[in-house]
Amino acid sequence: MRSTTGYQDAMEFPRFIFNPKEGIDNPALVIADDPEPDHSPVPRLCQLKRLEGQSFGFYLRVVKDGRGFEIRDVESWSPAEHSGLREGDRVLEVNDEYVDNMDFYRVVRKIQSCDLHLFLLVLRREEYEQALCVGVDLQTLATATKGDCYSRPRLCHISRHPEHGLGMTIISVEGQKGQHIVSTMTDGPAERAGVHSGDRLIWINGVMVSTLTHSSLNRTLKKSADSVTVLVIDSGSECCYIRRKMPILPVVAECCSLPHTAKTMHLVKGCDGYGFLLRQEKLSVTRRIVHVLREVDVGSPAEGAGMEDGDLLLAVNGEPVESMEHDDIVKRIRQSGDKVSLIAISIPGRDFYRQLSISPLLFHEEFTDCVPDQTGTFTTQLSQRTNDAFL
Score class of each variant (00 low, 15 high):
23 G>Q: 14
38 D>Y: 06
35 P>C: 05
148 D>W: 06
346 S>M: 02
294 R>M: 14
151 S>T: 11
375 T>H: 02
122 V>Q: 01
386 T>V: 10
329 I>F: 04
304 G>I: 00
327 D>S: 12
281 E>T: 08
299 G>D: 11
308 E>F: 09
169 T>N: 15
29 L>D: 06
351 D>K: 13
239 C>Y: 05
317 N>V: 03
272 D>F: 12
122 V>K: 02
226 D>L: 13
354 R>W: 10
121 L>V: 08
57 G>M: 05
217 L>E: 02
143 T>S: 10
154 R>T: 13
167 G>E: 13
119 F>H: 14
323 S>C: 02
198 G>W: 11
290 V>L: 01
350 R>F: 14
343 I>V: 15
359 S>V: 00
4 T>I: 00
277 L>V: 11
65 D>W: 01
292 V>N: 07
25 D>P: 00
52 E>K: 06
124 R>S: 10
358 I>D: 00
20 P>W: 13
387 N>I: 01
165 G>N: 09
249 L>Y: 09
370 C>Y: 03
54 Q>G: 08
342 L>H: 04
184 T>I: 05
175 G>M: 15
255 C>D: 09
81 E>A: 09
131 A>W: 03
54 Q>W: 04
22 E>I: 15
23 G>T: 12
340 V>R: 01
190 A>K: 03
51 L>G: 08
80 A>Y: 11
9 D>V: 03
269 K>G: 04
314 L>Q: 03
119 F>E: 12
42 V>S: 09
8 Q>W: 00
137 D>L: 02
138 L>N: 02
63 V>A: 05
24 I>W: 13
133 C>D: 15
103 D>Q: 13
322 E>L: 00
348 P>S: 13
109 R>G: 09
6 G>L: 04
286 T>S: 12
115 D>C: 03
72 R>W: 07
325 E>N: 10
101 N>K: 12
117 H>Q: 15
16 F>T: 12
175 G>I: 15
235 S>F: 10
55 S>E: 14
116 L>G: 05
86 R>N: 14
199 D>R: 08
332 R>D: 01
326 H>G: 06
93 E>N: 06
379 T>Q: 06
257 S>H: 15
299 G>N: 10
353 Y>I: 06
67 R>L: 06
155 L>D: 10
131 A>D: 03
